[in-house]
Design a protein around this nucleic acid. Sequence first.
DNA 1: CTTCTAACA
DNA 2: TGTTAGCA
Length: 171
Amino acid sequence: MSGRDEVLDEDGAEIARPAGDEDLHDDSVPQRFRSRIITLNSYISVNVKRKRAWGMKIGELSRASGASPRSLRYYEELGLISSVRQPNGYRDYDEATVGVVSTIKSLLDLGFPMTLIERVLPCTGDAGPIEGECSGIMARVAEIRDEMDDKAHRLLETRDALTAFLSQQPS
DNA sequence: CTTCTAACA
DNA sequence: TGTTAGCA
């Protein structure tokens, strides 16, 4: 173990060159860079111990979330999810993104238009720091909640009507 | 084979 | 949102 061996990811790409302790005490390394080296070292050690230097590529996230790569790029374009780029230009997603995508899919499932999700997600903090004024969007969300109440009631009525209808049918 | 961007029968 | 083209 030289401490200077290349660190490779699962695909064999070089991801970083870990600095050994000698670098931290070597006067050739300006002290203003040492904190960065320490940060890099801890980042590398954490990820290498997890046997994974990077997060997940779009294909993995796609399989894990059930969303198509096309959708994932679209969500990212809308700012719903984010990613960093690997040296090769490939998107690198944090594992936590799977949860955000699940949220998006759930809202989409419930009939929320992408345009609304685009404005609501930033207010949940899931897609990053809460920014902007959310009051307007929250008012709209409350409106939708009330509409849901109506739909729920009508749905129950229809269900009961169907039950009554079925019980009248001859066996 | 996978990903990327841009564009559209 | 899918799909396809042309690269890397």
